[in-house]
């Protein structure tokens, strides 16, 4: 009973973080067809921005939306500077891997320069711990487990029930036809990056509340998010979400029974197996498209 509960909480918690990260990657891939290797540093920068705002003793309920807004702007800028000028190149996927990696390195070192190498920690969303059926859980983790589905649900509703969301999904499928119905394709590309960066920032705030922050804190979540989107398939926004929770549970089970040391190896073993059996991903169709 104890083990099951611990795995349940661990899985939900990890899954929430992975989902928050992976959804942004998937959104950018499905709208623009590029992989954003700056996604991890967007998360890290989000955490640092939130830390700075908190350090100015701004209350958390303002810090959260303010950070997401600032990071949405940063995401937009990132897109305008290292992605948009390259659109239309034949080898865009590879070129953008390199430019976003370069941007990631710049941001990482910029953060190191501004805030220094000393580890920092963000305030938790809700303080304290609680006991659920005899298992101790922090309120911070419970808040994350509860907030994430709400945010992801809102994103799903936005993509599926609003005209702007419809436009985002359409751009992914046919750029020429999108232009011909009068969509502002460049603005939609910017919007995809802005949303992705805001969600990554939120993940950063989640993470900064229970682990020490450092300029390289985004590397591991980016890797996990990549695994999640490969595993879940990129054809929709719901695929990566389900995959994120699956992988979260897989990690929780592995680290409970085999220890943290073996978990990454097992995770990659499953991923490799997945790529051999169903390369388009668990929920993936063979084409690109959103939701």
């Amino acid at each position: 009973m104890d083990a099951a509960l611990q795995i349940l909480f661990g899985g939900l918690f990890q899954g929430s973080l992975f989902a928050m990260m992976a959804v942004g990657l998937a959104l950018i891939w499905t709208t623009i067809g590029v992989f954003n290797f700056s996604h991890g540093v967007m998360m890290m920068l989000g955490a640092y921005v939130a830390w700075q705002l908190s350090a100015w003793s701004i209350p958390l309920f303002i810090v959260l939306p303010a950070t997401m807004l600032i990071m949405a702007g940063v995401g937009w800028l990132l897109q305008a500077s290292v992605v948009r000028p390259l659109i239309g190149r034949p080898n865009i996927v590879l070129v953008v891997v390199i430019t976003t990696l370069a941007a990631a390195s710049l941001v990482e070192n910029g953060v190191l320069e501004i805030w220094g190498p000393r580890s920092k920690q963000l305030p938790t969303l809700i303080e304290g711990n609680t006991q659920i059926l005899g298992v101790g859980v922090s309120m911070h983790q419970i808040a994350i487990i509860l907030i994430t589905p709400v945010i992801l649900g809102a994103l799903w509703l936005f993509l599926n029930r609003t005209r702007l969301g419809l436009a985002l999904r359409a751009v992914a499928q046919n750029e020429d036809a999108s232009l011909l119905v009068g969509l502002n394709v460049t603005a939609l590309y910017g919007l995809a990056f802005a949303i992705a960066a805001a969600l990554a920032a939120l993940a950063g705030i989640f993470m900064g509340g229970y682990r020490f922050m450092s300029p390289v804190m985004g590397a591991d979540p980016l890797l996990k998010a990549l695994i999640v989107v490969v595993f879940g398939g990129l054809s929709s926004i719901s695929g990566p979400i389900f995959a994120a929770y699956l992988i979260g549970f897989f990690e929780a089970i592995c680290s409970y029974y085999f220890g943290l040391y073996w978990t990454p190896a097992l995770l990659f073993a499953v991923l490799i197996l997945m790529l051999m059996i169903k390369p388009e991903g668990l929920f993936g169709a063979k084409t690109r498209g959103l939701a």
Binding site: R163, L166, N174, V181, G182, G289
Partner: peptide, 18 residues
Amino acid sequence: RLFPDLTIGECLALGAYT
């Protein structure tokens, strides 16, 4: 080509974007 993963209703809604 059009929008393979949109429904007919969604395509028409998109047509009225301007």
